[in-house]
Design a protein around this nucleic acid. Structure first.
Lengths: 134, 134
DNA sequence: TCTTTGTATGCAAAAAATGGCATATAAGTT
DNA sequence: AACTTATATGCCATTTTTTGCATACAAAGA
């Protein structure tokens, strides 16, 4: 199984593990701009990381207009087994912070869809305040 | 857990997976020279691969004279979980061939210890024949 | 059709990993 | 003490991966 080597390669990078962690914990489909806020990384970094994860067949995508929703590919036993392993062992500080930021960002969804896109200068909190006051 | 990234890095190489596979399947401690015959790779390649596996805390060693016996580090839950995963998903041809060659090589042990060292030109079969005739 | 916006990607420099050889180390043997 | 042998490691060339920037592409809206 050459594929297993590829999967391990995809998993051997902190950014990519942080991304996987968010999908495992949130159990949702997420788009690039939401991950940008959660991980606080530039757009190209997220896109490239996702591309590697997709090539190793750990992720699948669905396009909706300009948005692209990514999600874990759970329909094969190797992946299921891997995700189950990761669920238990990704617990350090940085992962928890990502989860908190993602949670905030997801408050901006409408009908469970991303509608705000890339937030300039990351004034996420301001936008959330606006939304909750409305 | 930075350590998880290191472990995945260690696992993302075919030679190293082949080595791990042999330890999982044979359930034994093995030395470098035995792995050379099983994988048919030069001594430095085995040594270097084992060194990486040891640094990622997947392997432990015990020295006995000039021989060094390696074995899986099973005393922590992350490793246990990983090895359990690998046990189920390392199944392709090359792994089976390694297992067969290791089995042959282990026929040369005495009192469950390696005694022959590095076999020149790999006349393993000749040596086994000698031994079984004696 | 022009603009905007979310996402992808080509390119080049930097960094890291790999492969092969030669040699070092350490323990046993004579 | 010299020699042998199992294993480790330093070095160098090559390849692969990463990082950052700029730009391309695709879909929606004006």
């Amino acid at each position: 199984m050459e594929k297993i080597v590829e999967k391990f390669k995809a998993l051997s990078d902190e950014t990519r593990l942080r991304i996987i962690n968010l999908f495992i914990k949130s159990r949702r489909n997420l788009c690039v701009c939401e991950l940008m806020d959660a991980l606080q990384l530039p757009q190209y970094a997220i896109s490239k990381a996702l591309n590697i994860l997709k090539n190793s067949e750990l992720f699948t995508t669905e396009k909706e207009g300009t948005w692209v929703y990514y999600h874990l590919t759970k329909d094969n036993p190797v992946n299921k087994s891997l995700f189950n392993f990761l669920k238990n062992y990704l617990g350090s500080e940085i992962f928890l912070q990502d989860e908190t930021r993602l949670e905030a960002r997801l408050l901006l969804r409408e009908n469970d869809k991303c509608v705000v896109g890339i937030i300039p200068e990351s004034d996420l909190l301001k936008m959330i305040k606006q939304k909750t006051e409305a």
